[in-house]
């Protein structure tokens, strides 16, 4: 569905040039749900804007739905739906009117557009709002309208740029329900950008981590976490000295990736915590070191990002 090779975008602001995207190779198969994850300014949206023909790439090439993004822009546009960061519905337009206009833009007849508009209004629980002006809708309703607008022409591929940014948790959950249901029904390939870790983690089948304009990891969330972060086991020893000596012992084990000590606590990165935890406790008993508390936690995608870049995504997102 999407193939890019060495896609780059350089912006020039006065004398300074900014390399927003530095040679991205992406491959998305039909029917996949892929998240582009990265901090603000990582190049996610710029990549999306190139793939949707809004921006011409500086170098590199890409095909979307089998068509070249620079030489066959019209065909690319016909095959994709795009939900940008902003709101697609004009603020002084009526909800149903905007859906009809969108249908006409894709060459549907007036009647077809009307039928399609009503279908989508029903599908996204907007039927009662068809005659309302867009500016009077709530944030969540507006976002559902954006999705409806993006789906008018039944595109095989849908791009969502930060679909749920700024929404309250309830509206986010509701929006995702709609997106996932429509995907099940229509088999749409979905590519989204997000800086919400939990969103990428729970929704996407594949996560592509982007930082400073390059792809730095690309796999399922589970695989990324297992390979790049590992589970965390926390053991509390009797004393600081006991913790230090235990650290030097467990550090030699194969299943342990990394150990850090803070006070009497050991933070141990392991491949699989459920296997490692009993083994670690047995080992400390054999060396006569008592364990007062033990805990384990699964890694988050933030741990993955931290492992890859040395920075936390939460910090960069907040900054």
């Amino acid at each position: 569905m999407i193939h890019t090779t060495g896609l780059t975008k350089t912006f020039s602001r006065g004398k300074a040039t900014v390399e927003a995207v530095r040679g991205i190779d992406l491959h998305v198969k039909e029917g996949e749900l892929v998240a582009l994850l990265g901090p603000n300014g990582a190049g996610k949206s710029t990549t999306l804007r190139m793939l949707t023909t809004l921006l011409a790439p500086t170098s590199g090439s890409a095909t979307v739905a089998g068509h070249d993004i620079t030489t066959e822009r019209d065909a690319v546009r016909r095959n994709l739906g795009y939900v940008g960061q902003g709101n697609g519905g004009g603020h002084n337009q009526r909800v149903r009117d905007e859906l009809i206009t969108q249908g006409l833009c894709y060459g549907l007849s007036k009647q077809q557009s009307g039928t399609r508009a009503d279908e989508l209004l029903a599908a996204l629980e907007l039927s009662d709002l068809g005659r309302r002006t867009v500016s009077t809708l709530s944030g969540g309703q507006r976002r559902r309208l954006d999705i409806a607008i993006g789906l008018v022409h039944r595109p095989p591929l849908l791009f969502l740029d930060e679909p749920s940014t700024g929404m309250d948790p309830q509206s986010r959950a509701n929006l995702w329900e709609h997106i996932l249901r429509l995907r099940r029904e229509m088999g749409t390939t979905i590519v989204l950008t997000t800086h919400y870790l939990d969103e990428a983690d729970s929704m996407a089948e594949r996560v592509i981590v982007i930082d400073k304009g390059s792809v730095i990891a690309d796999d399922t969330a589970d695989a990324l976490k297992a390979e790049l972060a590992g589970d965390l086991v926390t053991l509390t020893a009797e004393s600081r000295d006991a913790a230090e000596s235990l650290a030097s012992i467990v550090g030699r084990l194969d299943l342990v990736r990394d150990v850090t000590v803070s006070g009497s606590r050991l933070n141990i990165r392991v491949v699989r915590a459920e296997k490692a935890l009993p083994a670690l406790i047995r080992l400390s008993e054999r060396h006569g070191i008592g364990i007062e508390a033990a805990d384990m936690s699964r890694p988050t995608l933030d741990d993955v990002f931290l492992g890859l870049t040395g920075r936390s995504l939460r910090e960069t997102a907040a900054a």
Binding site: T53, L54, G86, N87, G90, Q102, C105
Partner: peptide, 17 residues
């Protein structure tokens, strides 16, 4: 200008118009 800000112009740009 308003449509450039709120995103509705961008949405029209992605259509085959």
């Amino acid at each position: 200008l308003t449509e450039l800000h709120d995103g509705s112009h961008e949405r029209m740009l992605v259509t085959p118009l």
